[in-house]
Design a binder for these strands. Structure first.
Length: 649
RNA sequence: AGCGGGGUGGGGUAGCCAGGCCGAUCCCGCCGGGCUCAUAACCCGGAGAUCCGAAGUUCAAAUCUUCGCCCCGCUACCA
């Protein structure tokens, strides 16, 4: 086959590490696909990297008082570590803040210009006189002219409307909080509107999913030209005007090409139209950036003219966390690096891929994770593998291999099923239907378990027949491990190691190593702990902290006890009359037995005066006397004489 | 506000584009039985769904049309 596959994963933005949503929508699916294609002998490369330019990064850098490079390098490392920890492999992984990318992006831009797709136009833009710069994008915040809510740049956080930034009420610069003024500046525009026809034709003939096509068609109906330059320093400088940089969304997708270039000359076999004729370019992305990949990016490629266009766009749905929307600012998020401290990365890969079809939104919950791992992966798949290996090891110490001719009809039937299921699995994989592909494996394991149960090898005395049965089971195990490998590479290699086998569909009948439990059960305790520690602990601590303002709400004063008497019906209560300076209060205190009424009279104590009045044993209490201790109870009293009514702070 | 996607037994999900094969799929859960090689696992059987609501098209609708309700996402200077 001359077919080649270029898989790209959406570039990760270097403003934070990866969370479960990122890896479920994009990186795990891309890696699963790459591993599968490679396993079946296809030529495939996986290209990815980080996206380092744009306003959010400069804002973080300015707030932290460091250079944008420092932010970018920090998160680039973290992101790569997160990906490595989940066995997500790349043939090339780059940064957009790199020479090769900047050069590639500039060449791309010049080509667009040469082809007549770039023009200049003056626009109005906020300018901060204090910071002496134009306020691109989110550098300006203010009040939404529609709903009066908080708005950032062009977008209202409250009503979600898209805004004209210059229309903001009370705009301010996010750096110096000063009021910006409107100035005119010259921006470059990309003539996207001229490409409507070509884009429609391209989309029609592409293999994108229908819903992606529909979304793209609608965009094309109202295609505006695209403002592609920014008045800032952080980014890829325009090659024809170094006072401005390219808008990130123009420059970032070019990273797919730049990072392929890092592999050397073979990049041409993938990207150049004339050389790469049978290439499938698959962009794995999250569904938030479908339009960029189905309209803007193909538009750029058409305008450039020399490169291949994407074959398909595989967009993953969003992940909610325990049924609630994830939010990094509210800390309602599970970071990859936290999760893998508790559970095997392969379990996460399995769960995220089987939990729902890729293009749908779905939920991550710790209980659901545990359930699916324990009942499907372990009870069905893992158990079939394990019972086969353990039983075979006990009887023969090695995997059994017999001639196919010896097999009975029922044996051959299971082996036929292996083949049928492999084919079905292949179709599902090539349609990016990873959930169904995993279901195919479960079904095969169930048939294996069923066979095992019906054959009752533990009752079979005749060794020849036992060999046939265990050979049949062994073959089925190999199929399962093979099909499962793209999803759970580490666990599958462990099993193959025990079996002394290779990653293929042959069964060689070699010596078995000591069998151990490869798929260990996820215990309730572990789940509870992980959930508590990942989601709550920080929040709990923070929630239970109070501020000085909270404390200020307490009206604590020095009071003097004037009268004290027992409340007859109660075991612990005394009724006190306390002078708190400007008034006298009746207070019920639970100190009977610890103090006698007589010794209390005249004492100065601390009183909480603004607690809601309550009735205790039918007696109204209009305050609270502070005391400490369990067995020995002591009242809090001032250790110097201060006036009644003094505020306690 | 506009646009898009979705609402199917307790949870998840298939089927809907090309209406009858759907008295609705599969995984989990639940109930009953079996087995013991296996990580209380596995095997067999069973119960459980007004297919969001209303109206319509049709000999026939989960599937098509219209209206309503609810969830989610996107809206170009949010990666």
């Amino acid at each position: 086959m001359g077919e080649k596959y270029l898989i790209t994963s959406a570039l990760a933005y270097t403003n934070g590490p990866l969370h479960l949503g990122h890896v479920r929508s994009t990186y795990i699916p891309a890696d699963v696909m790459r591993r599968y294609l490679k396993m079946i002998g296809k030529e495939v490369i996986h290209v990815g990297g980080t996206d380092n330019h744009g306003v959010p990064i400069t804002i973080i850098a300015e707030r932290e008082g460091v250079s944008p490079e420092e932010i970018v390098n920090r998160y680039h490392r973290e992101i790569k570590r997160d990906l490595d920890s989940l066995s997500i492999e790349f043939d090339s992984f780059g940064k957009t803040h790199s020479d090769i990318h900047i050069k590639t992006a500039q060449e791309f831009y010049l080509k667009l210009k040469e082809n007549g797709y770039i023009y200049e136009k003056e626009i109005e833009q906020f300018y901060c006189p204090h910071c002496k710069k134009f306020l691109a994008d989110r550098y300006v915040e203010g009040i939404c002219p529609y709903c009066k809510g908080e708005a950032r740049g062009d977008h209202c956080e409250v009503c979600g409307r898209h805004l004209e930034p210059t229309k903001l009420i009370e705009p301010y610069c996010v750096i110096c909080k000063g009021t910006p003024e409107i100035r005119r500046t010259k921006h470059r525009f990309f003539k996207l509107s001229a490409l409507a026809k070509e884009l429609r034709e391209y989309i029609k003939n592409s293999k994108m999913p229908d819903y992606v096509k529909n979304m793209a068609y609608r965009w094309i109906e109202e295609l505006h030209d695209w403002d592609i330059s920014r008045d800032m320093e952080w980014g890829v400088p325009l090659p024809d005007d170094s006072s401005q940089v390219m808008y990130v969304w123009l420059e970032a997708p070019i990273g797919y090409i730049s990072f392929t270039k890092m592999l050397g000359d073979i990049w041409k076999d993938y990207w150049l139209k004339e050389r790469g004729k049978d290439v499938n370019i698959w962009h794995f992305i999250g569904k938030d950036i479908v339009i960029h990949h189905s309209v803007f990016w193909p538009g750029m490629l058409i305008a450039h003219g020399e490169y291949n266009l994407p074959t398909s766009i595989i967009s993953g749905g969003y992940l909610t966390l325990e049924k609630k929307k994830m939010s990094t600012s509210k800390r309602w998020v599970v970071w990859v690096k936290d999760f893998i401290r508790y559970f095997h990365p392969d379990y996460l890969r399995y769960f995220l891929m089987i939990n729902a079809p890729l293009n749908k939104d779905c939920d991550f919950s710790f209980e659901e994770f545990q359930k699916r791992i324990n009942t499907e992966l372990i009870a069905i798949i893992g158990n079939f593998i394990h019972r086969t290996l353990v039983f075979t090891h006990r009887k023969f110490k090695r995997m059994v291999k017999v001639e196919r001719e010896r097999l009975k009809e029922e044996d051959l039937k299971l082996i036929e099923r292996c083949e049928e299921i492999r084919e079905r699995y292949h179709r599902h994989m090539m349609e990016f239907n990873f959930k169904e592909a995993l279901m195919d494996i479960i079904h095969l394991a169930q048939e294996g378990n069923n066979y095992f149960q019906r054959m009752e090898p533990w009752n079979v005395k005749e060794e020849g027949r036992l060999e046939e049965i265990l050979y049949t089971c062994g073959v089925t195990v190999k199929y399962i491990v093979y099909l499962l490998y793209p999803f759970m590479p580490n666990k599958c290699m462990e099993i193959l190691d025990i079996m002394n086998e290779e990653l293929d569909l042959e069964l060689r009948g070699r010596e078995l190593k000591k069998v151990k439990v490869v798929f260990k059960k996820v215990e309730d305790k572990e789940v509870e702990r992980a959930k508590r520690e990942i989601l709550n602990i920080k929040d709990k601590k923070e929630e239970s902290m109070i501020t000085i303002e909270d404390f200020g709400k307490l009206d604590l004063r020095i009071g003097q006890i004037l009268e004290a008497e027992e409340i007859p019906k109660s075991k612990k209560l005394l009724k006190l009359i306390v002078d708190i300076g400007d008034e006298k209060r009746q207070v019920v205190a639970g100190i009977k037995g610890h103090y006698t009424p007589e010794e209390l009279i005249g004492k100065k104590v601390v009183v909480l005066c603004n607690i809601k009045p309550a009735k205790l044993c039918g007696v109204e209490s209009q305050g609270m006397i502070l005391a400490g201790g369990e067995e020995t109870v002591a009242l809090l009293v001032p250790d110097r004489d201060i006036p009644v009514g003094s505020k306690v702070r």
